[in-house]
Nucleic acid binder design. Sequence first.
DNA 1: CAAAGTTCAAATGTTGACATCCGGACAATC
DNA 2: GATTGTCCGGATGTCAACATTTGAACTTTG
Lengths: 222, 222
Amino acid sequence: MRRARRRGLAHEAADRVRDAIFEGLVPPGAALREVELATALDVSRGSVREGLAVLEREGLVRSEWHRGARVIDMSPADVDEVYTVRAALECLATGTAAERAAPGHLEELSVLTDTLERALDAGADSPALLSLDMAFHDRVYEIAGNSRLTQAWHGVRSQVYLFQLTRIRLGHDQYRSVVVEEHRRLVSMLERGATPALAEAAREHVDSARRALARMLADPPR
Amino acid sequence: MRRARRRGLAHEAADRVRDAIFEGLVPPGAALREVELATALDVSRGSVREGLAVLEREGLVRSEWHRGARVIDMSPADVDEVYTVRAALECLATGTAAERAAPGHLEELSVLTDTLERALDAGADSPALLSLDMAFHDRVYEIAGNSRLTQAWHGVRSQVYLFQLTRIRLGHDQYRSVVVEEHRRLVSMLERGATPALAEAAREHVDSARRALARMLADPPR
DNA sequence: CAAAGTTCAAATGTTGACATCCGGACAATC
DNA sequence: GATTGTCCGGATGTCAACATTTGAACTTTG
């Protein structure tokens, strides 16, 4: 069993605000005022403040001295930055995971992909698919078992999530048509161990997402 | 000019505590009590708390719910984790920097290496050399110009610093004998653009440090 | 005597009040 | 008329008091 974690109001507050951002209730670039959030969430400003610091660590929010916090926006440059870093991390993570994976782990990743496929076939909405998608990758990082690597991943994870949400919002057909296949490919590569081809597959998986989003941002299909 | 930054007491507190850790005043594994630090630094507990959160983001400190913060320790596993992640980041950073570097940037890195060499020849102490060493790498990240990458770097930077400090404390001869040459090699590779050989050099530079530290930890020369 | 329950000091988590800072609107100045 | 100075509303930064949790010493119980 995974041990239960007491977390405190700050993390709770961070979760609420993060979800609000993901749901689009707080658009990119919007200001996050401490008093406002404090009354809305019914906690003190101190807790909100600490929560915003958590979101800042995740890169979802940027704050400046005496100017408060704002939701990040997503210029094409931002997208490039995030996916470039993600590609490097994902490469390392899949490679390490391949080295350390027990057979059970690979089986588990395979099952996660099955779940994803079934959800797709059952007509689940794209955000739900994205959650499963992310869960798969989270598991890879866990299997790699490098806490610093996981921490680095958490530094871009929420941004990836936000960007991918935008991607599927602008046009989810392309996403739905490739997710499962790309994950299957990753699993099959993982089974063969830490090869250069695996690193290439991981890089390509990330880059495919980057290209799709870049296309969407440059030429919104409205 | 680089813009001036107001930062607040929390960052100031973080700086003090960080320095204290680097100077060995607070040994690995030691508890960092909020009230204690607050009185010592003459700031409120809130500011100390926020400062500790900064150090936690840097990986120098680990804190748990209602159990406070402790300085990380450095098991061989920790060393592996940090240098593994650092290698991946450094690869990406040098590659990107090579792509984007203006001639002036390469010149600047060369000058930084000259400074390092002069300091070495002038008999500067090893911690001073380490500062110059880190400044070089910081500049590479700046030149790469990827803020997410820089942030990921900051997530391991302080740990690298602490580990390297230990390395030179246990035996600085080896360090002094290779720093300059390894940096020269990096600069010359950077000048040839983003080649596979550059990535290899960056990886080797990091790995050399990892091996040196692992050797020291396994077999302390006392 | 070992295991579970109790108690208590010490530390952290949380809060609301007070101090400080920012940015824009308006007035003064050269 | 463009620049500089002053004011003020609204926001964040800081603080010290109060609430909660923890771990360990102690007691109880089977």
